[in-house]
Design a protein around this nucleic acid. Structure first.
Lengths: 162, 162
DNA sequence: TACATTTGTATAACCAGTTATATATTTTAT
DNA sequence: ATAAAATATATAACTGGTTATACAAATGTA
């Protein structure tokens, strides 16, 4: 536990803020990492690279379903990736509403190097979780519970039974 | 584990995004909760209430040190709390750079009710972590490790040793 | 005492997400 | 065949954080 950290001291009351704080820390530090190795990608592009590498072609809805972020979030990420030339879009022949998204040639060229960087990222996570082998499972269980009943609904229920 | 969730499938590579996703989920659902019980406060005001209740008077620097958020973040939170009349500021007599921040009378009036709501929030967290008693400790250990050496530094190191 | 450094606060610009709303296309149902 | 509903995408407005920069007040030092 971090010394003199009020959020840790207040236990359950500080949990949300600690998750936000940690996720921000990871976000900015990852950006910092990419910058210092001189590569022009953003942290969460990794997900899109992996998804499109695996599936070749997906549309926005499919991506947003799979990563469970809102579709406007995905649109923003993809627009940036398109602008940098890592993703190309063409409209679907049989359903003109859909964009078919694929990795560009530039993306495939960059992949071997990027994968080295990502390997180092993964190693960092493994090393930080070394002493907490249950963390990933616990996180999954928390996600699952909020999926079954939202934070809001649970809290309203707890309010009534007090 | 959430079914068909790409972020869970890719294990360590999806961790940062899952933390962000969970923290956002908690943030928006907490807002939703406050809205549905009809109270005009924001999620992280809870922290400030607790801090100022415990210490009576603090300045911005002291708050930002204790919760370990950047001072601009604290300034924004406090400005909103001032605007809603929950916090009052007066400048320090002996060091005119400092703002002395305290809870207002309105804040103390609201506290009993707010504390009921917060109790329900805490109960929700406890119930969701019920099956994962090690989660809080694990989170603390992760925070501690990144405090010792940043994500970026660790990852650069891992890159070199590959 | 004056000057350099440090400290506390403020602000600007940015970023990654959200919800709410709009629009065009496709699908379904009568 | 057409009207209604559903779906895919786009965009606007907002939020809660960040870093970088600025500046005035306080402190330390020559």
């Amino acid at each position: 536990m971090i010394k003199n950290d009020f959020l840790s001291e207040i236990k359950y009351a500080g949990l949300t803020s600690r998750l936000k704080r940690l996720s921000d820390l990871l976000l900015y530090s990852t950006k910092d990492f990419y910058k210092s190795v001189g590569v022009d990608i953003e942290p969460n592009w990794h997900l899109i690279f992996l998804l499109l590498k695996e599936h070749e072609a997906l549309n926005i809805k499919e991506i947003s379903d799979r990563v469970q972020l809102s579709h406007p979030a995905i649109i923003k990420i993809l627009n940036n990736m398109k602008q940098k030339g890592y993703v190309v879009a063409k409209t679907d022949d049989i359903d003109s509403r859909k964009q078919i998204l694929t990795l560009s040639a530039k993306a495939y060229d960059a992949l071997p190097l990027l994968e080295e960087y990502w390997e180092a990222c993964i190693q960092t996570m493994k090393e930080v979780l070394e002493d907490s082998p249950e963390f990933l499972t616990a996180l999954g269980s928390i996600e699952q519970k909020f999926k079954e009943s939202s934070y809001k609904d649970r809290t309203l229920r707890n309010l009534k039974t007090n």
